[in-house]
Amino acid sequence: GMDVRRLKVNELREELQRRGLDTRGLKAELAERLQAALSGPSSG
């Protein structure tokens, strides 16, 4: 899988935006949010 901790802030935001998620917050928050999205149930 993707290691969200290795991504830069702008990369985290890009991935979040692609999934329609909130791109605001600290890098740690963005990484946590993206990780949750990646490990969560895949819809679609």
Rank of each mutant, 00 (worst) to 15 (best):
R19S: 02
L34Y: 03
A37L: 06
L26M: 09
R33H: 01
A31V: 15
D22H: 05
L38F: 06
Q35C: 13
L34T: 00
E29A: 10
D3Y: 08
R19M: 09
E29N: 05
G40E: 10
L26N: 15
N10V: 09
L21G: 02
V4R: 04
Q17V: 07
T23N: 06
R18E: 04
A36Y: 07
R33G: 00
V9L: 15
G1Y: 10
E29Y: 03
E14C: 15
E14D: 10
L38K: 03
G25V: 01
V4H: 04
R19A: 03
V4K: 03
S43H: 13
R18W: 04
L12Y: 01
P41T: 13
R6F: 11
G20Y: 03
A37M: 05
R19I: 05
E14P: 00
L30Y: 00
K8G: 15
E15K: 04
G25I: 02
R24W: 08
L7R: 03
G20E: 03
S39F: 13
G44R: 08
G44M: 12
G1W: 14
L38G: 03
G20R: 04
R18T: 04
V4N: 03
S43Y: 12
R24F: 07
T23Y: 08
A28L: 07
A31I: 15
L38P: 02
E11D: 06
L34G: 00
L16M: 02
S43F: 12
E11V: 06
R33N: 02
G20D: 04
S43V: 12
T23M: 05
A31S: 06
L26V: 10
D22Y: 04
L30N: 00
A28E: 10
L7S: 02
L21E: 03
E29I: 07
D3M: 07
G44Q: 12
A36E: 08
L30H: 00
R33Y: 03
R6L: 13
K8D: 15
Q35T: 09
S42P: 13
R33E: 01
R13Q: 06
N10D: 10
S42I: 13
G1E: 12
M2N: 07
D3I: 08
L38N: 04
T23F: 07
G1H: 14
Q17F: 13
L30S: 00
D22R: 05
R19T: 01
S42K: 09
D22E: 07
E14L: 14
N10M: 08
Q17L: 13
A28V: 08
R6P: 05
L26G: 15
E11L: 05
L21D: 01
L38R: 04
N10G: 09
N10H: 15
L38Y: 05
Q35K: 11
A28R: 12
L34A: 00
P41D: 12
A28Y: 09
A31Q: 14
L34M: 03
R19Y: 05
G25Y: 01
D3V: 08
V4A: 06
R33K: 04
S42D: 11
Q35E: 10
Q17Y: 11
L7I: 03
L7G: 02
G25K: 02
A31N: 04
K8S: 15
R13V: 08
K8I: 03
R33W: 02
S42G: 13
S43I: 12
L12R: 00
G25N: 02
G40R: 12
L16D: 01
E29P: 01
A28C: 06
S39A: 14
E15Q: 09
L26I: 09
D22S: 14
S42N: 13
E11N: 04
L7W: 10
E29Q: 11
L7N: 02
R24A: 09
E14F: 14
V4D: 03
